[in-house]
Amino acid sequence: MTMVKPEVLTTAGAGEAMAEVARVLVAGDVTPLRCVLVPAELFRRHGYLLLHYPRLHRVAADGAVPLSSDARRELGSLLDSAGADDVVGAYEALTRESALSPAELESRCRQSGIHRLGSGSYASVTEVNRRLTIVLNGFLPALAAGYTDATAMVGLFECHSPREIGDLRAGLLGTLDPATAEPTSLRGALGALVRRRQGVTLSEGRNGVHLSAGHLEGMVQAWRYFATADGRGIESTVLGRSLAGLGAPMTAVAALAADHNVPEESGHTVAPHGATENLRRDEVLEHVRRWTAAGRNSSA
């Protein structure tokens, strides 16, 4: 799945931007099967934004509670080195300083640095109400606000390619900052387009395009945005059919869409979408088959 974000898609320029995405995809040996344009505000109001980034939202709302084992270890290391007073999610941080806006919180977090703890889990050491605080996913409230613009759209492409997702994300997607991305990449091409047409410079935080992080996340997104609209279940997706053929229970597979932590034999917990990020298809099938074999996909 390729998602084109609101900072790129305005009502006036949506057609040109979607055509540019399709051109870059085809040039990169990716076939767009179908696409849809959705008003950004409708996308947010119907819950798609939360469902597209479930762990980002959960960590921003609940703080450290949803973190996987690896993310907790990373957070512990950051706490040891930072000397911060507290750890809070982004929305809790907003309540602790009366005049703090989502945009200002994001600015502080980006200026102080954003540390990746794990899939969908990021931390910044910054001041909140004059106290040094670790804020989790501090950019998320401002990002969500971008989906309230009445002139903005969200574009969604369901795609097929013989190339593996890891290869596509390393090359075709482009670097996090569109300004440094290759001109032939999605982010590089779209960055050039909106700079030329709208006079807007994309950034690391508003980089225009999201590409599914792995086969599991791609399956969930294809199911949510396209299969369900046709009244079909997750087993109708390409990866879903393979999992059904392996005997994986489809209710357990569908539950992985929420990206709750799953336990491993080691006793640690992992984020399913993050644990399958950039893996080969056969590796993802084995992970999901194992997680769902005995109902082990319950939240942890």
Rank of each mutant, 00 (worst) to 15 (best):
S121K: 05
M1T: 15
M153V: 01
L51I: 07
H115R: 09
R296A: 15
V125I: 12
V200H: 07
S98M: 01
R232C: 08
Q111R: 14
E164S: 11
R131Y: 04
T175M: 13
L94F: 02
R197P: 05
L216Y: 03
R44T: 07
A271W: 01
M3W: 03
R58Q: 01
S236F: 02
A60L: 03
A99K: 12
P272V: 06
V238M: 07
A192I: 07
A229Q: 12
N261I: 08
R130T: 04
R187W: 01
A17R: 02
R72H: 12
E164M: 07
I114G: 02
Y122P: 05
R130L: 02
E106D: 08
S112H: 06
N129F: 08
G166L: 00
R44M: 09
L156M: 04
A248T: 09
F43E: 03
H287W: 08
R289K: 11
A294K: 14
S81E: 11
G174T: 03
R224Q: 13
E7G: 10
G171W: 05
G155K: 01
A64S: 12
R195N: 13
Y48W: 11
L100I: 06
P162L: 13
N261Q: 15
R296I: 07
V65A: 15
R232P: 04
G171H: 14
